[in-house]
Structures are given as C-alpha cells and as structure tokens.
Design a protein around this nucleic acid. Sequence first.
DNA 1: TTGCAATAACTTGTATACAAGAAGTATTTT
DNA 2: AAAATACTTCTTGTATACAAGTTATTGCAA
Lengths: 264, 264
Amino acid sequence: MSGKTSPKAHPVKKERKPRARNAPPPVERYTHALRTAKNSEVVYRDLRNDIVAMRLTPGSPIVEKALTERYGISRTPVREAVLRLTEERLVDVIPKSGTFVARIPVSIVREALVARRALEEVTVRKAVKRATASQLMEIREIIQRQQEMADAGDEEAFYRADKDFHAAIAAAGRHPGIWEMIQQIRIQVERYRMLTLPQHGRMERVVNEHVGILDAIVDRDAEMAVSLLNDHLDTLRLEITVFRDLWPNYFIYDPAVDNEANDD
Amino acid sequence: MSGKTSPKAHPVKKERKPRARNAPPPVERYTHALRTAKNSEVVYRDLRNDIVAMRLTPGSPIVEKALTERYGISRTPVREAVLRLTEERLVDVIPKSGTFVARIPVSIVREALVARRALEEVTVRKAVKRATASQLMEIREIIQRQQEMADAGDEEAFYRADKDFHAAIAAAGRHPGIWEMIQQIRIQVERYRMLTLPQHGRMERVVNEHVGILDAIVDRDAEMAVSLLNDHLDTLRLEITVFRDLWPNYFIYDPAVDNEANDD
DNA sequence: TTGCAATAACTTGTATACAAGAAGTATTTT
DNA sequence: AAAATACTTCTTGTATACAAGTTATTGCAA
C-alpha cells in the first residue's frame, strides 16, 4: 500500500487529530460478551479450591514459578491469582522470600460464624415475607435431593445441596448481594469446617433441621424460622481442642479473643 | 571472578545440591517488619479515595498509562491497583477496550444498607455485654469531638469522627473482624451517601443519636440500643429521586429489585 | 564438633516489550 | 450527501528480563 497517502489538496503534514477519548459507559453489551476465560481465573479457582479443601495445608509454600510451568503460562496471570488470594486472606506473601498458605486465624473463624448468622437471619426473615410458592417448592426439592445424597453417603454432593439450600433462601428473600457476602464469609470458615467434618449422623441431622426451617417459612413464622436457623448454624461451633491439640500449627491465635468466653 | 573457584581436592564438578524448599510458616517476625509501602498500595488508595469521594464519577475512564506517568512507575503496580478495585466492584475493566469507574448498582446499595444494619446490631449487642468503663469513656470522648467538628462545620473531620464512633463500638464488642466487614460494605454505600450529603441539621441530629446509643449501652439496655441504632442507620435511606432524576447515569438498576417495595 | 562468615541460588517486585482486539478517524463507494 | 469500509491508534492481556532481597548451603576457622 505504498500509494496509500493519496495526493491531497493540502500538502501540510497530515496532523491526524489525536483520538478523542470518549467515556463510553460500561454498557451492558459487554456483560453478555464472551466472558474472557482469563488464565488467572483458572489458577485462582484451582488454588482456592485446593486451599479451602485443605489439600494445600496452612504453611505450605506456593511458588509462582512452579505454577507457571504447571499451567504453561507466564508469571503475570499467576501473580494476579495469588494477589486475589491475598485479598481473601488465604495466602501470605512475604516480600522477597516466599508465598505460603495462610494459617487460619481463630478469631476470624469465630467472628465469621457470628456474622454469617446475622446475615442469614436477614435472608430468612425476608424469605418469610416474600417467598413465592414456586420458590418454596424449589427449596423443598433441594432438601429432597440433599436427603438422597445423605442416603448415598456422598459428602461432596451433600455439601453442594446444603449450599444450594441456603442460596435458595437468600434468593427467595431477594438478597443476592447478601448471599454473596455470606459466601465470602463461608470461605473463612470452610477450612475449619473441613477439619471437623466426620461426625456420625451429621447429614441426617442437617436435613431434618433444613426441613424445620422450611416449614417455618411456609407457615410464615419468622421467629420460629430464625430460632431454628440459629440452632442449625450453631452445629458448627468452635471447639478449642480441634486446633489446640490436633492441628496446633494450622491456626493462629489472637490472645485478645482467645481469652474471651464463648458467649456469642 | 576467575580465581574465585579455589583449587579443590575433588576436581569433579561442584554439583551443588539444589536448595531445599523449606516451608517456613509465615512467622510473626514478618508482621512487624517494615511494611513495604508498595507502590500499588499508594495508587490503589488514591484511586479508591477519588472514586468514593465522587471526584472520579461513574463512567469516567481510567487509563493505566496515564497513571504510570503520573506516579512515575510502570504498568505492573498500576495494574495491580486497578485489579484490586475491580474486586471491590469500584471499576469495570473491559478487556481490550478500556477501564472505567463502575456505576453504582442500586440493588447493591440497598442490600449493603441492610447488611450493615445487621452487622452493626451484632457489635452493639456485644458492646452492651462487654464494654469496659474506659471504652465507654473513649466513645463519649469521640462524640464530644464529633460535636466540636459539627460546630466548626468541618464535614470531613465530622465524618471521620462518625466512623470512629462506630469503630469504637465494634472494638468494645470485641469484633474487629466484623468491623472490617462493615467497612468493606460502607465502601459500596459511600458514593451514594456523597450524593445525599447536604441536608440541613444533619450533623446535629447524628450527634444526638450517637449520644442516645451510647447512653443505652451504658445502661446495658440492649433492646433500646439496637432500636436507636436502627433509627440512626435509617437516616440514610434510599431515595429514588436521587438517582432517577438528578444523576440518571451514575446508577445501574436491577429490575428484579427496583420493583420491590422498600420493606427492609 | 561447633560457630560464623561468605556465597550462590532462589524468591518476589518491577520495568518493559510485544500481542490481540476495540473503536474512532479517514477514505471510498453508492 | 450518506453509508459502508479500511486503517490508524489506542486500549488491556501476556510474556520476559532484570532488580532487590532472603535464605539455605558451603567452606573455613576456632
């Protein structure tokens, strides 16, 4: 394209106008656009799953270079994933030394349990007020599925159904944002939960409690629903022995909180 | 460095053992170590402040290159800061096009107000139970300072004192983690609050409400304290006209929520 | 053997170059 | 004149090279 610059009437240099920087609002056009399956997203999700499932135990090193080789990508997206995990307090990065899976702060777990209860109470109260018949039926169906998973002894699917139950209540209460907050909080508790999992008859009890909560919502009995919810969430109580004796260096203690009585 | 390798008795190649990767737990030694005033931290803080203060209005473009020139740093830390803001829903980045200050989702603001109330109720109830005399005196002092700022008409300092008041209650309730969550939630509401600020007599009313809450805590009257707190937080209510008429394209509407009655 | 200093290798932090795509501008065509 | 098309320039995503600092290893000395 040598003749590209066609002879112009004005021999002055082209002096192209600098591109005007419009301020196009982030239009909805982009929201449905192909979600760029970013590499960092994959790394982030894998690492987070490994951490919350305790496959990567607290204190384990996370080496960026090893991840670049494993995924065949450069350090930039890997680093991006690690930084996201840092924000969520799941990893600790020590400047020029190394990156490690964060230990679980006992105080955070305790407060997360309290906060979650407070927020779920909101969603349940709203669900009592606003749940439609179809939403109630959907929740009933989730419980049924959970019962089947309990019978089959499928811990993994059981837990997914448990999550769906609480999510469905939040949806019925029209509180998707609060459900996101609850999920964020759950991450902080998840690793502790993994350590206290194997309790005999736990799955059956959870299902029964879910049935009770749903029935109270159907009856539009807010106080009963909230009361049952509190009992339900209380099943995951902090047991000092878990972290003091069994896994002493998976946790970090905060003396100011450790001395507190458990009177939440 | 030619003569550095001193003559050895073993002429075989050195074959240094590869460095064993220990898993040193992120010891506390590092927490007090000089907090690396990372460049990205500065950029992040500046941008966040500009956004929540509405100096950067929703829809404004954020150009990484411009920031690199302004701060004299490379794109890497700038990008890090932008990504953190993305996590907090304060900016939208459109893959190969541009980065923009996010518009305010009305539904998020509404839910954030509800969530904050639920969490602050927790801290107040706990403060009623656990606040020490010195902590109560400190809160009283904060209110006094706030009164003085109100008299001086210093909006900025007044707002800082307001924040300190709520933080002190959370501290008295031994819930630093929940206070962090509240702060995170506040960010989502902050921009909306900025738009509804200039109300006559607002500062005096806030101070009076704070006094009432503190008195209830001193009296160990949990129900009264919570009731007053709810009234207090209700002063920041969603007013449709603010975003529908005055600043129509600062906000994003979610029809599923927009049609809801305001019955939180 | 034990302690200590030098050193090499490994870590993360930062800068920079390149790639891919989006959008405004200029040109051509109808 | 208006619309379609080509192109230039800008944007962010990614890879890579280098800088700064930490730590295990090594060798040496007491």
